[in-house]
């Protein structure tokens, strides 16, 4: 058998070592930049706060595990309230991203090729401008002296009875502002996975449903929506998880009296220098975010396994 250059190259690529490197690289990355830092945070959450540098130690009354941080999560309602505010803001933001993003994603799949690429480009375009700059722009828009606020105020005052008239609409420093800016920021993360999902759907199925007597609205509920659930879940997770831990948006436009959990973690670390407490909150947030995802994955896997088993009968 002749050995050509191409064969040699193939052999070189097929060597076991290379395969291991290629498979191993992501694992190394995840271990070094996710698992190890997470274990450090987890360990720190069980440490005891000290006035030293670094400001924690293992020892004292609780030689190894100090559950004080976790206990305080439930004792001080600051944390529970922060969690609730975070979940609520993230929940509303996800809901509105879905309500705005779904029609946009669906529209993208129904439009001609040429326009589609331009519009997809426009969805991604905001990422080319600094995120901070865009949040500041919103602060400007929502401020009581902005043309935007004046326009809305004018419209409000024109529509409601005189008693309800206001000088300006208080938008800044509220949960409303947090949700608004979060929706604005994370909308592409909802649109893109939804678009990827909807674009793959077979339009013949829509025709089949119409052929069997369903109007287009019915076709949407019966055919399009059920098949797009994986896209909704993917987009929802991509918006909900970072939105719940969001620090910058609530710091800049949020209600300082009702902090979100990201702000709490940041304050515990930086201002209070209570690293174990900050770590406890961070671990609690992670568990809160990961559990529903794991439950979903588990359930999904079981449902698929069941279908496969039935298919084999």
């Amino acid at each position: 058998m002749k050995t050509t250059t191409a064969d040699k190259r193939e052999n070189w690529f097929n060597r076991r070592g290379w395969r291991d490197v290629i498979i191993g690289a992501p694992y190394v990355w995840l271990i070094a930049f996710f698992l190890v830092p997470f274990l450090i945070v987890l360990a720190m959450s069980f440490a005891t706060r000290t006035p030293t540098a670094p400001p924690f130690s293992f020892g004292g009354d609780h030689p190894l595990l100090n559950p004080e941080g976790y206990a305080r999560l439930f004792q001080d309602d600051l944390y529970l309230r922060a969690f609730l505010t975070s979940l609520m803001n993230a929940g509303f933001a996800t809901l509105f991203c879905l309500l705005i993003g779904y029609p946009m994603a669906l529209g993208l799949t129904r439009i001609g090729r040429g326009w589609r690429n331009i519009l997809l480009m426009l969805v991604i375009l905001p990422f080319w401008t600094s995120f901070l700059l865009r949040v500041y722009a919103w602060m400007g828009l929502m401020g009581s002296n902005s043309w935007f606020n004046k326009l809305l105020t004018g419209a409000w005052n024109g529509l409601v009875p005189v008693d309800w008239a206001v000088r300006s609409i208080p938008m800044m420093n509220s949960n409303f502002a947090v949700v608004l800016v979060t929706v604005y920021t994370y909308l592409p993360f909802m649109i893109l996975p939804l678009y990827a999902n909807l674009e793959k759907l077979d339009r013949t199925l829509d025709e089949a449903a119409m052929d069997l007597g369903s109007r287009p609205s019915r076709v949407f509920w019966d055919i399009t929506l059920p098949q797009s659930i994986p896209g909704i879940i993917a987009g929802g997770l991509l918006v909900f998880i970072p939105a719940a831990g969001e620090l910058v948006i609530p710091s800049l436009v949020g209600d300082a009296g009702r902090p979100m959990i990201g702000r709490v973690i940041s304050d515990e670390f930086a201002s209070a220098r209570d690293w174990p407490m900050a770590s406890s909150v961070a671990v609690a947030l992670l568990v809160l975010m990961v559990l529903p995802m794991m439950a979903y994955t588990h359930y999904q896997g079981r449902a698929e396994g069941r279908e496969r088993a039935e298919g084999r009968q």
Binding site: T204, L205, E207, A208, D211, L212, I223
Partner: peptide, 27 residues
């Protein structure tokens, strides 16, 4: 199409993948 007394069998069959055989037939 939804108001015509006409039904079609599609070349690709266009069965609804998220429904059982029973629900497809009963759709």
């Amino acid at each position: 199409p939804w108001a015509r007394p006409v039904h079609m069998m599609f070349q690709s069959y266009a069965l609804f993948p998220h429904m059982t055989v029973e629900r497809n037939v009963g759709y």
